[in-house]
């Protein structure tokens, strides 16, 4: 009884902090979802783009740049990183996953170069979370409002975009690249732009995280991809992915639920070092589920197109 009580009390106490964190990390989940689901381009760049955004934002804050331009700069370099991954894949016919690993490995050095050291404190620099009415600066409420609003605006804009002529074309590239090309769509442009956009969001997550925690670290991306993937799967399990609206909402819902679950596990006494193993096993289980279901009963029937 005592155990349950302390667990619940510490979990509830952490809800606001966790919510703030998850709304920031939802950008990374979005950056994972877009290539994966919209472009059929399984991509790992976010593991490098997240710290990239953080490092760029950190250096700019330290140099006295205002917080919003610092986030925009992070977005810009994140976009370039994603473009590079897509280009490596398209031009040299290297598998998307390998292209992503190459980029995130190279980005590690670049991030170190950008900061000049592995860790940079920006504590005391102004942040986006400073000027929220009724919320005390530096407290979770301010972060929840800012990150939540920012995320909501991005969500609405993306929903709009994917229903425009251009956005429909981008989705077609993910659905059937040969058909898209035959319908006059420039597959290269759509892929490079789409993966770039996704990495821009991952970098935005990094930039917001640095402003939230008060420091930038080259190692801040480690494991973020699997966390993001777990969040995405939870989100899709909860609200589905059949329509553009649902698919776009999944990262946000998933991030919020996933990080609360993590917080609950920690509150229940799970040692933090075991967290990555648990997350990995969870993602594995989610990925394995369909194939486990299929092996029961008849052999997996390949979808046929003939009548």
């Amino acid at each position: 009884m005592d155990f349950l009580q302390t667990t619940i009390v510490s979990f509830i106490g952490l809800i606001p902090v966790t919510l703030a964190q998850s709304l920031i990390l939802a950008f990374v989940v979005l950056g994972i979802m877009i290539p994966f689901r919209m472009l059929n381009f399984p991509d790992l760049t976010s593991e490098g783009a997240f710290p990239l955004g953080g490092c760029v934002c950190g250096v700019m804050l330290a140099a006295g740049v205002a917080p919003f331009p610092a986030v925009l700069a992070a977005m810009g370099v994140g976009f370039l990183a994603g473009c590079c991954t897509a280009f490596i894949h398209l031009r040299f016919r290297i598998h998307t996953l390998l292209a992503g690993i190459l980029m995130m490995t190279m980005l590690y050095s670049i991030n170190l170069r950008i900061m000049g050291k592995s860790n940079l404190s920006v504590f005391g620099s102004p942040t986006l979370f400073d000027n929220v009415p009724f919320a005390q600066a530096g407290f979770p409420a301010a972060k929840i409002v800012v990150a939540g609003l920012f995320g909501f605006v991005v969500f609405l804009l993306l929903d709009r975009f994917f229903k425009t002529e251009k956005g429909t074309a981008v989705r077609a590239v993910g659905a059937n690249p040969d058909m898209a090309e035959a319908q006059g769509i420039n597959v290269w442009a759509a892929t490079i732009g789409g993966v770039g956009l996704a990495s821009a969001f991952s970098a935005t997550g990094g930039a917001l995280m640095v402003q939230s925690q008060g420091f930038a670290d080259v190692n801040m991306g480690i494991g973020i991809l699997i966390n993001g993937l777990a969040a995405l799967m939870i989100g899709e399990a909860i609200i589905g992915k059949k329509t553009v609206l649902r698919q776009l909402a999944a990262p946000f819902v998933g991030a919020v639920v996933y990080y609360q679950l993590v917080s609950l596990c920690l509150a229940a006494g799970m040692p933090p070092p075991d967290l990555k193993l648990a997350t990995g096993l969870f993602v594995l289980a989610m990925l394995a589920l369909p194939s486990l279901k299929r092996t029961r009963g008849s052999a997996p029937a390949r979808e046929t197109i003939r009548e």
């Binding site: 425009t164 002529e165 956005g167 429909t168 074309a169 006059g184």
Partner: peptide, 20 residues
Amino acid sequence: AENMLLADLRSSSRRLRKGL
């Protein structure tokens, strides 16, 4: 409808306006 839209725009440039 989305497939029809893609074909409809085959010979024109796709813009940032509502598709369907």
